[in-house]
Computed example of a mutant assay.
Amino acid sequence: MRNETVLAQLIEQAKEDGADIATLRAIAEEAGELSAQRALARLGLEDVGAAKDMAELRELLGAWRDAKRSALKAAFSWAGRMAAALVLVGLAVKLGFPGWLK
């Protein structure tokens, strides 16, 4: 039995029975289940391999974030080393180090 049919039957039952709390809870539960299934279907995640796909995507996203963080660290480290080298070259020129080489 499809969820749409179950939901329609529960709504009809609620209409006939005067909508007691158990019936309304069942309607809400079925509506939530149906909505979740529709949302997953629209996202293309309704098949049995979806959980594995999501785990792989999360792993890939984590790896991307780690790589990005490492690249930024390397770039800042490189920039810091270049700045230190420029300061040392500036000091050497200011103190006359090229004259010491002659």
Rank of each mutant, 00 (worst) to 15 (best):
G90I: 07
A31G: 08
V6G: 05
W78A: 15
N3Y: 11
E4L: 15
Q13W: 00
E56V: 15
D53I: 14
G96T: 07
A31C: 01
A50H: 03
L86V: 01
L95A: 04
S35I: 13
G44W: 01
D47M: 04
A92Q: 03
I11E: 13
W64T: 10
R58M: 07
A67F: 01
E56A: 14
A19I: 03
G18V: 03
I11R: 10
R81N: 05
Q37M: 08
A8I: 10
W64C: 15
L72W: 00
G96Y: 13
G99S: 14
M82P: 04
D47N: 04
F97L: 01
V93D: 06
A84F: 14
D66Q: 15
L57G: 08
L95W: 15
G99P: 12
A92W: 10
D47T: 11
Q37W: 09
A36R: 11
F76N: 12
S77A: 08
D66A: 15
A36T: 03
Q37N: 13
L91F: 09
D47F: 01
L88R: 10
A75Q: 12
K102V: 11
G62Q: 09
M54R: 12
R25N: 05
A36C: 10
A55P: 08
R38T: 02
G62W: 02
E4C: 04
F97D: 01
M1P: 11
L24D: 09
I27K: 06
G49Y: 13
Q9E: 06
G90V: 04
A79M: 01
A28N: 07
E4D: 15
R69P: 03
E59C: 06
L7Q: 12
L34V: 02
A14S: 09
R42V: 05
A83V: 07
K52F: 04
L24P: 04
R65D: 06
A79P: 06
G80V: 02
L34A: 04
R69G: 13
K73N: 07
A28K: 12
F76E: 14
V48Q: 05
F97S: 11
K68W: 00
S77G: 15
A83T: 03
K52C: 05
N3P: 05
L43V: 03
A36I: 09
L88V: 11
I27N: 03
L34P: 00
A67T: 10
E12K: 07
R58P: 01
L10W: 02
